[in-house]
Amino acid sequence: MTPESFSTMYEAATETPPPTNLAPSAVKAGRRRLVRRRLAVTGAGLAALAVVAGSAYAGTGLTEDSPDTQVATPGATADDQIIERCRTLDGNSEEAVDAVYSVGHPTIVARAETPDQTTYVLMAADEKVWAECSLPRSGQTSPTLTYFFPPGPITSSGVRHFLAPGSSLRTAAAVGSGCALVEDSPDPGCRTFVVRVTDRLPAAVASVAFRTGDGKTTVVDRQASGFVLLDHVGELPDGVPADPSEWGEFRALERVTYLDADGDPIAAGAMDGSGDPMKDERVAGLRSLEKYLSLKSNPEPGLIDEVR
């Protein structure tokens, strides 16, 4: 292929982007970032932003105690204590904290427990933003808060594009090493991996089956609030290195299948584990997951039917 032919093909491939409303969103996101930086510079005690908004999985170690070990605050409910603990975690993005807590007292709308940690979904008081907060029990993962913003406008084609930081229609998982980092890299002796999903799905999806790279399938029910939470710790197969950047063909999450109330599959998506949606595969005989778009960014009623 010549440079000229590449240019011509690329021009055609990208010449009609879907509509967007990027400028106002960019200003808003930039202002939040600027405020954070100023606060940090003036010694307000805010930690440096360590993660990209919406991808707040740092895997940085095991410094937090279980919520069970907290000192009780007089008058505060157990949920209040958890909510407050989520606000003050070391790994938090200030942007996340601001988004979830600045409009009032958030509430816990979903939770999922594993032997290692409990993941909570916090809904902001104005219900425009929700976040996930994971508190470890035995030190498999670091506690972090991540959040999702409300959606952007619906375009004329009915496809909604999420422009705020960390927001997206994509059904996404976080995958990584199951052990603490050693000098910012996964412990080479670590033989576990973790797949974490916090998603919000339409009512047509009663449960979700996740097939992971250890050959196991975990079925998670959709909670009444619409949230689906998975926190799977698996054994790395022999020969797969501990460092996710060296996983190569290993797919931590192999397949996601949406099931209806009868337990029958209604849609599925497969992935190659690279984190690159371009390399994902379709699952023969089933509709793609896009038919049941994630509600993680809380689209308005009717959008799903419109896109379907």
């Binding site: 998982a173 090493s177 980092l181 793609s288």
Partner: peptide, 9 residues
């Protein structure tokens, strides 16, 4: 070490 992966859109 942690990354986001997406499925099926």
């Amino acid at each position: 070490p942690w990354r986001r992966v997406s499925v099926g859109l």
